[in-house]
């Protein structure tokens, strides 16, 4: 029996997946993602696609808020920038979906960086208020600049087409969305084992010490905003192409709070946490609805109060997490892994 895992080269020691168990888990996850669309019906595919978009958005927000420590309430606004950029470029200028998506990412990164400038002076709650202003300004512009965005009317985006295949079904979009999730995950994980990511974490943990270590706070805070907004814009652009319709109601302050809830419940400063949090928050309403339906036959009265129960449960879950596991789902996942790593010797 092994007494531990010992690496003999630095390469092996620095690999992301260092143990056989980690490799097995990764293979299982990928296998599941590959098989899932063939087994699931349309309802579950819709959920899977929503989760994919939420994961990208949550990873983006986590890079900024969880890793760099810059609280952002502008998530909804930045997603709106991504969605409207992609929508306008495709619907009005006839750009292919992938072109408009990439362009949308860069546009959002630029606008995110602009709204990140206050972070050089403001910290914590003060910065949160500044990003809240970004959220409101963006939504105001979107609803009032009728010539560009169509104002409060919905913007209709044609179906994306890739290699001659029209991506109009959930099944087709699943492959697009989850491939992008894969790329985003690899990039994000790599970011945090290289100097850029370390500088971000350093700014979060001790910004003065970071500056004395040679980290240019100005540059790296703006860079964090840029990278984060890039991914958030990507999530927004995918929403536009997935829904075929862009409306400002989808990007209000509620969305900003929802995404903050995702990364808090998932685990701040953790990529796995972003996955878990995004999945949890996206699936929770669906689970509650199904539960309500199941109970309807026994308690007919539940139908009218179901929406309230949903919201209350949502709030309750967040409060319970903050009390019992402030480090989020990621910590619970870690505890489970640790338990089985030592099993059956629990000491």
């Amino acid at each position: 029996m092994d007494s531990g895992i010992f690496h003999t080269t630095y390469e092996k020691d620095m690999a992301l997946r260092r143990t056989p168990a980690q490799k097995v888990r990764l293979v299982l996850l990928i296998a599941f993602l590959l098989v899932f669309p063939f087994l699931a019906n349309r309802y579950y595919l819709t959920l899977a696609n929503q989760v994919a978009i939420a994961v990208i958005g949550a990873v983006g927000l986590n890079i900024l808020t969880g890793y760099t420590g810059q609280i952002s309430l502008g998530q909804g606004g930045f997603m709106a920038v991504g969605a409207y950029s992609a929508g306008i470029l495709t619907a009005r200028l006839g750009m292919p979906w992938w072109g408009s998506t990439i362009a949308a990412c860069f546009i959002t990164a630029l606008i995110g960086t602009f709204f990140g400038i206050p972070s050089l002076r403001l910290k914590g709650l003060y910065l949160a208020i500044a990003t809240l202003a970004a959220q409101e300004i963006i939504i105001w512009v979107v609803t009032h600049w009728r010539a560009l965005t169509g104002g409060v009317d919905a913007l209709v985006v044609p179906d994306p087409v890739s290699f001659g295949i029209r991506i109009n079904s959930d099944f087709n979009f699943y492959w697009v969305a989850w491939s992008i999730v894969g790329i985003v995950t690899i990039a994000a994980v790599n970011l945090f084992r290289t100097p850029y990511g370390r500088a971000f974490i350093a700014i979060r943990d001790q910004d003065i010490a970071a500056s004395v270590m040679g980290v240019d706070l100005f540059k790296y805070k703006l860079l964090a905003f840029a990278i984060s907004s890039f991914l958030v814009g990507l999530a927004g652009a995918l929403t536009a192409h997935y829904r075929n319709i862009v409306t400002w109601e989808r990007f209000t302050i509620d969305i900003s709070v929802l995404y903050l809830a995702m990364i808090i419940i998932g685990g701040l400063g953790s990529i796995t946490g972003s996955y878990l949090g995004a999945t949890f928050i996206t699936l929770l309403p669906a689970v509650l609805t199904n539960l309500g339906r199941a109970l309807k036959s026994t308690f007919p009265a539940i139908d009218s109060v179901l929406p309230f129960i949903q919201q209350a449960t949502f709030g309750l879950v967040i409060i319970l997490f903050l009390i019992f596991e402030p480090e989020g789902l990621n910590k619970i996942w870690k505890n489970i892994k640790d338990y089985f790593r030592l099993w059956p010797f629990s000491y």
Partner: peptide
Amino acid sequence: IELFRHMTVLDNLLAGAHIHMKT
């Protein structure tokens, strides 16, 4: 002490070498 509390010792040291990394 103003270390980066949530990083490992290794990552703290690597963060210390920040100015030399140019990739």
